[in-house]
Design a protein around this nucleic acid. Sequence first.
DNA 1: AAGTGGTCTAGACCACCCC
DNA 2: GGGTGGTCTAGACCACTTA
Lengths: 254, 254
Amino acid sequence: MTVNDTTIRTDYPDPLWVQAADSLREQIAGGTLRAGSRLPPERELCLTLGISRVTLRKALQALVDDGAIAPSHGRGWYVSGHADERNEWPNSLESFSETAERMGLLATSRVLTAEVSASTIDEAEKLGIAPGTPLFRLGRVRMLGGVPIALDWALIPALLLPQPERFDFTTDSLYQALADGGNELANAETTIEAREASADVASALDVEAGTPTLVMHQVVRGRGERPVLASTVQYAGDRYRLRTYFARHNRTEL
Amino acid sequence: MTVNDTTIRTDYPDPLWVQAADSLREQIAGGTLRAGSRLPPERELCLTLGISRVTLRKALQALVDDGAIAPSHGRGWYVSGHADERNEWPNSLESFSETAERMGLLATSRVLTAEVSASTIDEAEKLGIAPGTPLFRLGRVRMLGGVPIALDWALIPALLLPQPERFDFTTDSLYQALADGGNELANAETTIEAREASADVASALDVEAGTPTLVMHQVVRGRGERPVLASTVQYAGDRYRLRTYFARHNRTEL
DNA sequence: AAGTGGTCTAGACCACCCC
DNA sequence: GGGTGGTCTAGACCACTTA
């Protein structure tokens, strides 16, 4: 027999495992499942949620990636102590706008540069394109509550962001603009280092020259695996702190 | 029957999905599957590898987490351009010893402190233990090829690392020591900031006071979700660069 | 229309933990 | 021994891409 045809049949529902994961997240957030407590057995959850065990386990894995629960072989699933909401992009750095939201501040930008011009050899190599390919260059001062926090330079092959003048990057998200154009971001290589503020950077960030800054360089790729974006962000050392959360995967090896 | 009931029985075959993932990794690394090329269809791989589709997909997901391949609905699986070996702990920061290996340098340490003493209130709060609980304190200068790179302070509840004097932390890995004791590390909360080197730090790292340093603070949890380790690492700004690689998960949002 | 990945099921057996 | 998570299967249908 098939499932009991509950006639839900809604036209475009989330996959069952997403619904199940959301349901469990709510129960954890709502306190029905307290931190440290054990979840009902998988086979019982299957009945409660009306899904198969394979599907349930996919939902549970999603919660593991969030850091919300952890399995213990032979004992059960346990709710993590620190089960608050995690990033929507787990294991990533907290984004600037996420930080702003967490701190209850308004994230804005002052646009220094927004223009299309030919790429240099170095830029082309980083982005995996031919030298001279048109690049959209976006330079911004990122601010929280009006205070300058970071200098952000982004390079995007112009073809991937047609008509950049459609956007107002004092408030619009560059990531969102790329996603709207069908360039979903899939992964990123990141390096982070500490460096003194040069005179130029210092004046843009309104700090003294020579003070420590945090320099983050990223090459972000889309689904197609070609780099979509290269960015360099330089944070004033005493005004920002990168945050991230790592969860180890299901590897059995040490 | 009860053949030899040797209690050990270290007869661990890897799960099929791990074997399958390894097999695919080899084919990619070995060039049988070139960057950018398409993998055989899932149903064909199932026959080749002699496993079911569910199992195969678990293996493929592992490669996605490595950043080695990416799926395209309706088209196939594609090998990523940058398909070289990734971290064993994907989406984590590259560890000090990994960096050393990549650069062909020898990672050593000078042990400043290795002692057990009672925890302060602040330390206890970070580690989720009672104030006064004995802590193993390990202070090291981390070096690459004999050059001091970072100051590393680690705090571990003493119960989790009995007889720390068994280890020689000038060369032994703290993570390995914890894993040997059954404390597998599961996840970590990390903050990273830039700060000036104090006089003490500067002399330990052999740099000038006031130069930029990268300060990374981590609270690492094990499977049990209780913190296992709190560490603060301060890198000389002009001698080290953190590296990481993020891969977006299967979320459909955006 | 055919091929491909995405989701889902019902049931099975194994490995681990605890009584 | 009984309960629990970990692995695995064979088959089904849906959604997307390409021709």
